[in-house]
C-alpha cells in the first residue's frame, strides 16, 4: 500500500540512538531554506561579505599608513592590513552565524510558527536545529571564500596554510550558530534580542582585531583570550600568517565544545518548547 512510504522512512532510524530527537533528515530542512532562498532577493544574501572587505580597505590602508608594520606575535612583522584581515574574516563568520541563529530563528520560532509545522511531521528537533545551522554554514562558507578571493591576491595571506582559514571560518560559524540558537530559544520578546548586540560589541572591539592584545594588562589579556571571538581570531590569524603550532588544536577543541554544548541545549529546548 502506498501509505507506508512516510512510515517506512520514519522506521529506518527506529531503535537507533536518539531516535526521539533525530530522524536523520536535516537535509529536508536545509532544502526548505534553499527553496526560500531561490525566491528571496539573492543580492541581499550574496553581498554579505562586502562589510569585512570595506573594513579591510578603510583600516588596513587608511589607518595602516599611520601604523606601519606590526608585530603579530613571536616577533613576526606584518603589514597592518595583513594583521587585521584574518580578524575580519573571523568576525564576519561570527556575525553571520549569530544573525542567522538569532533574528532568523526567533522569527521562525515565534512569529511564523515554522518550526511548529516542521515538528508536526516525522522530523525531530535535532533535525530542525542541524538543518537550520547547516544553511547558516553554507552561507558562511560562501562568504569566507568570497573574502579570501578578494584578500589573497592583495598579498594579505602570506602562507599557504591560509587555505585552512576557510574551513576554520565554517567551524567558528558552527560554534556561534549552535550557541546562538540555544540562547535564542530562551527569548520570548524581540527586545531581548538587543542583549545579543550588547554582548557582541565589546567582543568585536576588544578581541584583538585592530591591535595586539599586548596593549592591555596581563589579567585583561587572559580574560579576553578566553572569549570565543578572540579564540577565533587567534586560530585564523595563525593560519593566514602561517604560524603553525600544535596549540592551535586547543582553539579547534574550544569550538567543538561550543558546538556540542549548543546543539545539546538547542535540541532539548526545541523539544521542550514544542512539546509543551
Amino acid at each position: 500500500m502506498l501509505l507506508s512510504a512516510a512510515v517506512a522512512i520514519a522506521e529506518r532510524r527506529e531503535g537507533k540512538f536518539g531516535d526521539r530527537y533525530y530522524a536523520g533528515r536535516s537535509r529536508a530542512v536545509l532544502e526548505r531554506s534553499f527553496i526560500a532562498f531561490k525566491s528571496s532577493t539573492w543580492f541581499v544574501v550574496l553581498s554579505g561579505f562586502v562589510e569585512p572587505v570595506l573594513y579591510l580597505f578603510s583600516f588596513g590602508y587608511g589607518v595602516g599608513r599611520f601604523i606601519g608594520n606590526i608585530d603579530a606575535g613571536s616577533g613576526k612583522m606584518v603589514s597592518y592590513a595583513a594583521f587585521i584581515a584574518p580578524a575580519l574574516l573571523a568576525t564576519s563568520a561570527m556575525n553571520g552565524a549569530v544573525y542567522d541563529s538569532t533574528w532568523n530563528v526567533f522569527f521562525k520560532m515565534n512569529q511564523s510558527r515554522l518550526y511548529h509545522g516542521m515538528l508536526a511531521t516525522s522530523l525531530g528537533p535535532l533535525d530542525v536545529a542541524l538543518g537550520e545551522i547547516a544553511w547558516a554554514l553554507m552561507r558562511g562558507l560562501i562568504y569566507a571564500i568570497g573574502f579570501m578571493a578578494v584578500v589573497a591576491p592583495m598579498g594579505l595571506i602570506p602562507s599557504w596554510w591560509g587555505v585552512l582559514a576557510i574551513p576554520a571560518a565554517v567551524l567558528i560559524a558552527f560554534g556561534f550558530a549552535s550557541v546562538g540558537m540555544a540562547i535564542t530559544s530562551y527569548f520570548t520578546r524581540f527586545q531581548q534580542m538587543g542583549a545579543i548586540n550588547i554582548a557582541l560589541l565589546p567582543m568585536f572591539l576588544f578581541s584583538g582585531s585592530f591591535y595586539p592584545l599586548t596593549v592591555f594588562p596581563g589579567w585583561i589579556q587572559a580574560i579576553i583570550k578566553a572569549l570565543p571571538l578572540s579564540q577565533a581570531i587567534q586560530l585564523i590569524r595563525a593560519l593566514t600568517l602561517g604560524v603553525m603550532q600544535v596549540g592551535l588544536l586547543v582553539h579547534v577543541l574550544y569550538f567543538l565544545v561550543m558546538i556540542t554544548f549548543g546543539l545539546f541545549i538547542t535540541t532539548r529546548r526545541l523539544d521542550a518548547l514544542f512539546m509543551r
Binding site: A6, E14, R20, A120, T121, M275
Partner: peptide, 14 residues
C-alpha cells in the same frame, strides 16, 4: 517515546 515514528502515520491540521 516514539514521536517521529508516530507522526509519520499522522496528518495534522492544527
Amino acid at each position: 517515546i516514539h514521536g517521529p515514528q508516530i507522526r509519520a502515520h499522522l496528518g495534522v491540521v492544527p
